[in-house]
Design a protein around this nucleic acid. Sequence first.
DNA 1: GTGAAAGCGCTAACAC
DNA 2: GTGTTAGCGCTTTCAC
Lengths: 335, 335
Amino acid sequence: MRVSLKDVASHAGVSIKTVSNVVNDQPHVTPAMRARVQKSIDELGYRPNLTARHLRKGRTGIVALALPELGNPYFAELAAEVVDAAAEHDYTVLLDHTGGRRDQETLVCQGFRSRVIDGLILSPIELEADDLRERAPVPLVLLGEREYDLPYDHISIDNVAAAREAVRHLIALGRRDIAFLGARRGRSQPAHLRLRGWREELDAAGLVADDRLVAATDGWGHADGAAAMARLLDAGHRLDAVFAYNDLIAIGALRVLSERGLRVPEDVAVVGFDDVVEGRFGAVTLTSISPDKASIARMAVESVLSQLDGVPRQQARRIHAGYTLVHRESTLGHD
Amino acid sequence: MRVSLKDVASHAGVSIKTVSNVVNDQPHVTPAMRARVQKSIDELGYRPNLTARHLRKGRTGIVALALPELGNPYFAELAAEVVDAAAEHDYTVLLDHTGGRRDQETLVCQGFRSRVIDGLILSPIELEADDLRERAPVPLVLLGEREYDLPYDHISIDNVAAAREAVRHLIALGRRDIAFLGARRGRSQPAHLRLRGWREELDAAGLVADDRLVAATDGWGHADGAAAMARLLDAGHRLDAVFAYNDLIAIGALRVLSERGLRVPEDVAVVGFDDVVEGRFGAVTLTSISPDKASIARMAVESVLSQLDGVPRQQARRIHAGYTLVHRESTLGHD
DNA sequence: GTGAAAGCGCTAACAC
DNA sequence: GTGTTAGCGCTTTCAC
């Protein structure tokens, strides 16, 4: 049977309160008393029951992280950062994956597990503002590209600016026919941010943003990128560069390009988004937008914890994390 | 303020117990009563406090998964499977990463968070048997390649057999000088299983297991594989095949091979281990041992839950999950 | 500085 | 079928 505070108290011949004081490092305990209690704790092998503590304090020390999919290394790398950031505040992370499905995302927000987590960090894909009409039962922070007009903090990089920088880089290389891979198929959202950045930068450069060079995908994996690239090539449109929604799509495209005998970057330059490790080790390393994952994670955790301490946000904060464009072979050529 | 069972009870004009019965779907409640209580629940927006429930029941509904690193897609993919497997039993997953460091692994086992989790699934790297001398405070299941003589279930594929199959495949291709990439540098463990499989199969085929063709690495990432491959090539040993400890190392090696102008598989055939998605989309797709991640995850969760229901294991079970060798371009040649 | 007692929200005897 | 009550292990006033 497990040993409780009470057991320690009677073993040490003191009251529960005193033991509690020792356990919680309260100041007003005499050193002698502290030593005596500590001895009992050690002998009995006492360990505090966190569930009970949490019930009492109203906090669990757990924050949930709900991501579309762990299989995508970007999210996996981000999850690792969140775990670290949370650990710095003595918080642990409960992991969910929603599959990017609206029902799952809604469920997670509306208090699924609400009483066992202190807060939620969510990276939504399909979630709509309506799904969040009623206030989330715990502090909530949103991550990622989707934007909502809701009173929740939202942390992301400036997707439009980042996309523009990627396209600008391609244009500077002399490319003119720049495809976009990874527009969402069948989503209501009119133009997501990275696609908008692609369009804006092309417009700004006086080039045409040719919709025939926009390839939609069902998902965001390698296979989706490969399929989209193949479709574009099969359609016979001229193109000399590709800007992909993310690295996985870009890498899928790279594969098809090589199968078709097209050289990267000579024939087609490619830029991805996310800077996943995998992009640094292909036959052609991938130029990519590199979001500052560590600071995204840190800010997300801090947002949750500050909401926990203070009043719930009336006003959403839109926080932009940093990013850089990392130049690699897919736009530079081999050394 | 949050609404509790008591609030619902007084609102509906019934006792707490009745509300509890409704919430927990107990059989003996009249439909009329059930409807009335449900109405109050809905109006008040009641949601059960899981912490309190768990304190009472002694279970939290949470199982921890401690992995070396999420950045490695194998672990990320495995984590996703564990989340799914746990969900089928209405369990959720608390994620940890240990960084493969012994102190972290020990901490996790010895009850770090023990009172808030019902069980632990751990994939150890550096952990030694001594670190587990005193019984873990919750049901524990071990995953992965490390083997211990301890009373805990251990789930993995048959690493020796799988490695032998990989090497056998290489030999069948006519390769004779088969390198092993990814032996652990500076670890006490004399021969880990995949290395042993490499050696055994070479012996069985009457070939020499040349230790000069064994390249140690510090870690298990792309960069480690690239460095090891480069070292081997620089040393000038003749080799016509590579068997890597995992896919990431193999992919790093692939990169170096291509930089050096060596063709895969014509000059050097390569086999990896893990079958991560990434290996299916490189310029050269990667032949790999594919562990049945879903069943590993399922068995791990089931082991924890069965220990929770029954008596703690006196006898460890060593469970082997299935695997297959997936043939791809790195040993087959382009189509 | 230390002790006694209340109560966090829930479940499960047991009584009605 | 439904109500009453004790108590899971802890923290926290409030006395002493």
